[in-house]
Amino acid sequence: MSFNKDSAVREAKTDLAKRLKVSESEIKEVSVSETDFPDMSLGVPVEDEMSAQMISTGWQINLNADGENYEYRADKYQLRLRGFNGTNYIVKS
């Protein structure tokens, strides 16, 4: 799987709609920005994971559904969801 900004946003919307069990049309894109993350887990490690400690550029994708904000992070190789119900997820890699 290889991402660019647009495909990462599309995948994030699809993922969030599935998790919330709502239609993708109900997911609003709040902002998408290019960001430096502290490591190659994009600053959102999952359990039992170790990541390269190199500053990595990717995209921070902020979505909203039913008034709640959700944060995804992506780079060309991965898409992650930050702190969904208190847990980080690797959505795709």
């Binding site: 887990s41 170790m50 780079d75």
Partner: peptide
């Protein structure tokens, strides 16, 4: 090698 293309890996593989 214990980290993949994304630059992350598991403790077990380390």
């Amino acid at each position: 090698k214990f980290m993949g293309r994304g630059g992350f890996g598991t403790t077990k593989d380390a």
